[in-house]
Design a protein around this nucleic acid. Structure first.
Lengths: 335, 335
DNA sequence: ATCGATCACTAATGCGCTTTAGATTGCCTC
DNA sequence: GAGGCAATCTAAAGCGCATTAGTGATCGAT
């Protein structure tokens, strides 16, 4: 920057004004400085900038999942690439961290905050009794919760959410219409907010229709548990005629398990996967799935965060309800 | 830090000495300062630290793949979680970015370098005629190339690599032993170094054995192309009796496509997937796959980078050769 | 008893940038 | 033509830390 000042024949302050579109320099000087800066390939040192009051030009994302259950679904990378698109435009960096559990995650937030490493964070996998919003509010770290429930309790935190309840109701509607009365929901991790919401909605919908043989079984999202639970419920006295899996991986593993037990899909049992992905079209029968635009989800979340960083108010925005794509794994109830 | 100095009754310099294990303070003062710092939950501002000569305490990772082909395989998240493990110990952050192509990637490196944002980077998906090592060498940015070939041309850059050639040779060995003489390799992206290496090795192995009906077909790694190529080669006059897929996703899609055409796996055609993952055990038949410890791969790479940051010499380290796990999709040649 | 050396600590500088408080000039007004 | 004002620019301070050059005090050696 000293170089620029020298070459342009002005003071460093003038350079700062010129490059940050601040008043105090004439247009011709501004242009000259800009040209010199460009020519020199100058970029402001984020460290120096940050030290003098600006932000860190970085947002954080921490994922709390054990390594082995992390890579199985494509959700995260899709989400991240959506986030990136928006952040890249504004030259914001994404600091990414994988940890074991939520306690560690809180530790990371505290550290980032103390080190002034990030201007804001994106929180994924919101949970019931989640300590993170409280913490972030306390730290004063702008945040957007991805996939949470609208939460009036934290005025500084934005929420981007999909209507899982509505989607679950739609799935039950459709299965009911197909004649299914015994439905098992192979759910995801018990602590997650959207898992609980789906479970509650399923129960409510069942009660509304007077269905007694409808239930949810929580799992860890892994293919192994998906298959195991599938075997268990299908081998019970009165097996369900429809299975709803909370992710694509379990659905695929479940179909394989069912087939092995001699159950035809969708003849004997219908299957719905909550997350759509190429996977659902890679196995036969093709899986009916709840589809949403995960990349767009990420974009929306990042937009909310940048809005927050710009001093905007916290908002709660809803992304489109996941749509049920009926393929080959759902059909009329045969039992 | 000023607070700490005040509360401990010493100067800021003393605090700095104490907390950085530098000589110049007595052990009792050091302890006292440490206690106060801990009590206050103090963490050094990375920005300030960086400004006074230290590094950014951050390493960068940029992935150049279009969003939709990104999430399909579990490779990246596995790799990243391995990387994280090592970085977290040293309180190094991981700056992550997804871009469209290598040109953009180079732009990101230039920007990071100019902004002093990272101390080093990890390069993935090395290519033939890759511009990145040259660039990084020019910028003087410590780097480790993940999955490259040993490269003597860049003294400042470490390489962590798996012996794809050896693995391919082992696969051909095994398939040959099973009686297969017509083999098609459904390869990955043409520009990638390991793709080319696998293709070359396959050709060499074929020539060595006098096999004429062995070839590679490059793809974009997607399930769609995997299935399409599978259909094309199986419908040709003399279809291959063994297929080697460069990733798990294409292998699964390929098996589905083959089955649909009436080919039995492994009766009519054997299938090997290059990358092992839960996916390979989720479909029937279970896929024989080349397995390696991707998380460990990431750990090794991160260790090399930290060694480089500590001023160590650039090295070339090899991770274990992927092992062929024979499951149900390979068998004796029936044709 | 005096000098140099060692130890424990403090004062002051600089990293690269933003920003506030001047300084200088030209121009307008009455 | 003197005072005032806007426009354009410069000087200087400060962000939080590391580091270098100092400052006393204590100690052992002569």
């Amino acid at each position: 920057m000293k170089d620029i000042a020298q070459r342009a024949g002005v003071s460093e302050s003038a350079v700062s004004f010129a490059l940050n579109d601040r008043p105090g320099v004439s247009e011709i000087t501004r242009d000259r400085v800009r040209r010199v800066a460009e020519q020199l390939g100058w970029r402001p040192s984020t460290a120096a900038r940050q030290l003098s009051g600006e932000g860190a030009a970085t947002v954080g994302l921490v994922v709390a999942r054990p390594a082995d259950t992390l890579g199985v679904d494509s959700f995260f990378l899709q989400l991240i690439s959506g986030i990136q698109e928006v952040l890249a435009e504004r030259h914001l960096g994404l600091l990414f961290q994988v940890v074991e559990d939520v306690a560690d995650e809180c530790g990371v937030y505290r550290r980032w905050w103390a080190e002034h490493r990030v201007d804001g964070v994106m929180v994924v996998d919101p949970r019931t009794d989640d300590p993170r919003p409280d913490l972030l509010e306390e730290l004063g770290l702008p945040a957007v919760v991805i996939g949470g429930v609208p939460d009036a309790g934290h005025p500084g935190i934005s929420t981007v959410w999909a209507d899982d309840a509505g989607a679950m109701a739609a799935v039950v509607d459709e299965l009911y219409a197909l004649g299914h009365r015994r439905i098992v929901h192979i759910a995801g991790l018990p602590g997650l907010a959207h898992t609980e919401r789906r479970i509650r909605t399923l129960r409510a919908e069942a009660e509304r229709r007077g269905l007694t043989e409808v239930r949810s079984v929580p799992t860890d999202y892994s293919d192994a548990e998906g298959a195991a639970v599938t075997r268990r419920v299908l081998e019970s006295g009165t097996p369900p005629t429809a299975l709803v899996y909370d992710n694509d991986v379990m659905a695929v593993a479940g179909v394989a398990a069912a087939t092995e037990l001699g159950f035809l899909v969708p003849g004997d049992v219908s299957v719905v996967a909550w997350e759509d992905s190429p996977l659902c079209r890679m196995v036969k029968p093709w899986l009916s799935a709840l589809s949403r635009d995960t990349v767009q989800f990420g974009r929306t979340a990042a937009q909310e965060l940048t809005a927050l960083l710009d001093g905007g108010p916290a908002r709660t925005v809803q992304v489109p309800v996941p749509r049920l794509i009926e393929r080959e794994s759902t059909g009329p109830c045969g039992a």
